[in-house]
Design a protein around this nucleic acid. Structure first.
Length: 472
RNA sequence: GUCCCCAUCGUCUAGAGGCCUAGGACACCUCCCUUUCACGGAGGCGACCGGGGUUCGACUCCCCGUGGGGACGCCA
């Protein structure tokens, strides 16, 4: 039997981090078993579904590389099928019309809550042997309800949580079609999972309570019941539930913020799942290892610092050309054009080990392509008057050498020695002058990349300022 | 309120009765490397929610508490 999994988001917003992990696990499970991964858009909520959200979800999955084998299917395009089944169920008695108004239902719920009961539909329109139904009221379009079993229990062996058993007395006759005839979520899911031959339903555990209803429906339809795996939720960095206000950010926000998709993927894979002590692995490896047995049943808190660590790792591994293309764009967004001088890939190679995100990388190398932002505190600390003659002399030396890291280093070393100084005493002022700050890679390497002309120009400009002369 | 789920270092987790003096990773601290900051290397700090059982033996199994979360829509 071919394993078939699905990811079924409702297009009411972007693809957030929890949805992305659900998609990742479903995708990986299908890959692991040479199965098929189906994408289905659950867009029956006309009020809240938007085409923009559909696109956002597709974009997010594409960025992560979670490719689907089938779909996307759209539920709104399957209306005829749903209506056909509903007609069938009405005919065979597994569903019935209910003429309760919303007000009536609200009142019922209110009363039950007050009596300390679980709010449930009381079955007043449910046909029974020898029962007299109320008189059908005028002008009230009915909803269609599923005739849920009254007794017994529904149970399934959840692949993550183990056996879950729920009494049918906890369930009620839920609505499968609204008054306007459109089918509802629990119904569509069941028909779709059935029609699409889904063998493993991997989804968030906020659906645990829907599962018994769906199983009952499946049985009423004579459909095979798939296996279920309910994933626990992901909490925000602060331990709070992810929500619009609590950093339930779009996966595309991670792109914005300078994260590599492979880092996000690796991080998400380890959030709620593990393979011994393995921390760093690619998706090829993940798909070979992934199983449902090693998924944690408890909720996991998102940890940006660990994501950062992984991101730093993948930045160091990434292809330089790819990084350069990305960084060029990020610099452009900052209004900086990275020309050919100095070579962007070389600059990135010099800096990639010092950053955790691509934005940090772009920011930290910006000074190569435009005038550095001067850190005045660093200036005050390192550009002391006594260093002026040393730098003046050094500039003279630098003017006439071959511009290689080795030669530059030798000249600086010489200036240090002949003045009886320590290396940092010369290196730090230079660093501030050239980069605008007190932190950079080896100053000779920076100078080599910056180029002779630009290095001397920045030194001159700095020295002029230092000597209280008008800047050139 | 009712039902359901969950519970190991600050965080992510390993652990399927003896391998646990509870392992790894992130973060944190110390030292080393060093031209500043990083990277890297070596150490360190740090946890089985509580109480009862079961068992020769429990982090592991059962029960009860406690705490956290979820669900109770003509939303998905």
């Amino acid at each position: 039997m071919t394993i078939r999994t699905r990811f079924a988001p409702s297009p009411t917003g972007y693809l957030h981090i929890g949805g992305a992990r659900t998609a990742l696990f479903s995708w990986a499970y299908a890959r692991r078993h040479q199965g098929r991964f189906v994408l289905r858009i659950e867009d029956t909520d006309l009020e809240r579904s938007t085409p923009e959200a559909v696109q956002a979800i597709l974009d997010g999955m594409q960025w992560l590389g979670l490719t689907w084998d089938e779909g996307p299917y759209y539920q709104m395009q399957r209306m005829d099928r749903y209506k056909e089944i509903i007609r069938q169920m009405l005919a065979d008695g597994s569903a019935y019309y209910c003429y309760c108004t919303r007000e009536e239902l609200d009142a019922m719920r209110e009363q039950q809550m007050q009596a300390g009961l679980k709010p449930r539909y009381d079955g007043r329109w449910r046909p029974e042997e020898g029962k007299v139904l109320p008189v059908v009221p005028e002008g009230i379009p009915p909803v269609v309800r599923f005739r849920n079993p009254l007794n017994g229990t529904v149970a399934w062996d959840d692949l993550v949580k183990g056996r879950i058993e729920i009494s049918n007395t906890e369930l009620d006759d839920f609505i499968i079609a609204r008054a306007d005839g459109t089918p509802t979520y629990n119904f569509c899911v069941v028909v779709d999972d059935w029609d699409m031959g889904i063998t493993h339903v991997i989804r968030g555990d906020d659906h645990v309570n829907n599962t018994p209803r769906q199983i009952n429906l499946l049985r009423a339809l004579g459909a095979e019941v798939p296996q279920y795996a309910h994933l626990s939720m992901i909490l925000g960095d602060d331990g709070q539930k992810l929500s619009k206000r609590h950093g339930a950010v779009s996966v595309m926000q991670y792109h914005e913020d300078g994260y590599l998709p492979e880092a996000v993927l690796n991080y998400l894979a380890r959030l709620g799942w593990s393979h011994g002590d393995d921390e760093i692995f690619d998706m090829r490896q993940f798909c070979e290892w992934f199983d449902l047995d090693h998924i944690t049943p408890s909720a996991a808190q998102f940890n940006t610092e660990k994501l950062n660590w992984l991101n730093a790792h993948y930045i160091r591994q990434a292809d330089l050309g790819r990084l350069a293309a990305d960084i060029r764009e990020r610099l452009q967004k900052r209004g900086i054009a990275a020309g050919d001088h100095p070579d962007l890939e070389s600059v990135i190679a010099l800096y990639r080990e010092r950053v955790q995100t691509l934005n940090e990388l772009a920011d930290s190398i910006a000074y190569f392509y435009h005038e550095p932002m001067m850190d005045e505190v660093a200036w005050e600390k390192h550009l002391t008057p006594d260093i002026i003659p040393v730098l003046r002399a050094l500039a003279g030396e630098l003017m006439v050498i071959d511009w290689t890291t080795e030669r530059i280093h030798a000249v600086i070393e010489q200036a240090v020695k002949s003045n009886g100084l320590k290396f940092p005493k010369v290196a730090m002022p230079l660093r501030v002058l050239l980069t605008g700050g007190a932190q950079s890679p080896s100053i000779d390497a920076v100078m080599a990349l910056l180029g002779q002309k630009e290095t001397l120009a920045r030194m001159e400009k700095g020295l002029s300022r230092l000597e209280k002369l008008p800047a050139v």
